[in-house]
């Protein structure tokens, strides 16, 4: 089943001489349960691609559909609500809310949606990510790796159709990186979670099921 699909996705910044084609017609699709890595050098357009996939930015032309819904057709408010239900984010610098505890951070997307969290499921996530002892802590008291685990838990909590991870190990040392990647892989497997991760690190990318390489706004290689 296709969870994510783009058609001739283009994004252009600026105009005239300063025109930059960040994305120059990207066509890709991701199946349910896949763990895909998008690899590219800095400036290749991979971050732009991720923002388009997550509905954080709107394409100049082309379309993105997630879980069968076309993002471009949704108004801002609708898109936000769709995003919190269907898309989870993991950022390079974790982006946890500093005034909320670990537990509150994890529940935040569900509560923003006004839903009751599924206690058992949340328990499993916490268990899987090894966060039991840290639930009351504030993010600033955690190490980078721990913070990223919380971010992953937060992304998982809403049972999204897809998790988009933007350089999730970019701020971590290599051992912790391996650790976090392992967790991503495990969660993908255990919860059947679709994950699209972008990275510039080939070694990290190797841990995904599939690698998409992007250069100058175009997909150059699929594997």
């Amino acid at each position: 089943m296709t969870v994510l699909e783009t058609k001739d996705l283009r994004k252009t910044y600026g105009a005239g001489e300063t025109e930059v084609h960040a994305l120059a017609g990207v066509n890709m699709s991701v199946q349910k349960g896949e763990f895909v890595a998008v690899v590219g050098t800095s400036g290749s357009g991979k971050s732009t691609l991720l923002h388009m996939l997550g509905g954080l930015d709107r394409p100049t032309s082309g379309s993105v559909s997630v879980d069968g819904r076309e993002l471009g057709s949704m108004a801002d408010e609708e898109l936000t609500i769709f995003r919190r239900r269907k898309i989870g984010f993991v950022f390079q610098n974790y982006n946890l809310v500093p005034v909320l505890s670990v537990y509150e951070n994890i529940l935040l997307p569900i509560q923003l949606d006004g839903r009751e969290p599924d206690g058992e499921y949340i328990g499993q996530i916490i268990d899987t990510l090894g966060l039991e002892g840290k639930l009351k802590n504030l993010p600033n008291n955690l190490s980078g790796g721990q913070q990223q685990r919380v971010a992953i838990a937060r992304a998982l909590a809403a049972k999204p159709a897809i998790i988009l991870a933007d350089e999730p190990t970019g701020n971590l040392d290599s051992r912790t990186s391996q650790d976090v990647m392992g967790l991503l892989k495990v969660t993908s497997a255990r919860f059947g979670q679709t994950i699209v991760m972008i990275t510039h690190n080939e070694e990290i990318a190797q841990m995904a099921n599939r690698i998409i390489r992007i250069e100058d706004g175009l997909i150059v290689e699929r594997r």
Binding site: G54, D76, E77, T80, I81, R84
Partner: peptide, 12 residues
């Protein structure tokens, strides 16, 4: 931080 909140699903 506010942008993050929005990206994880806080509406305007």
């Amino acid at each position: 931080e506010l942008a993050v909140l929005q990206s994880i699903g806080m509406t305007g």
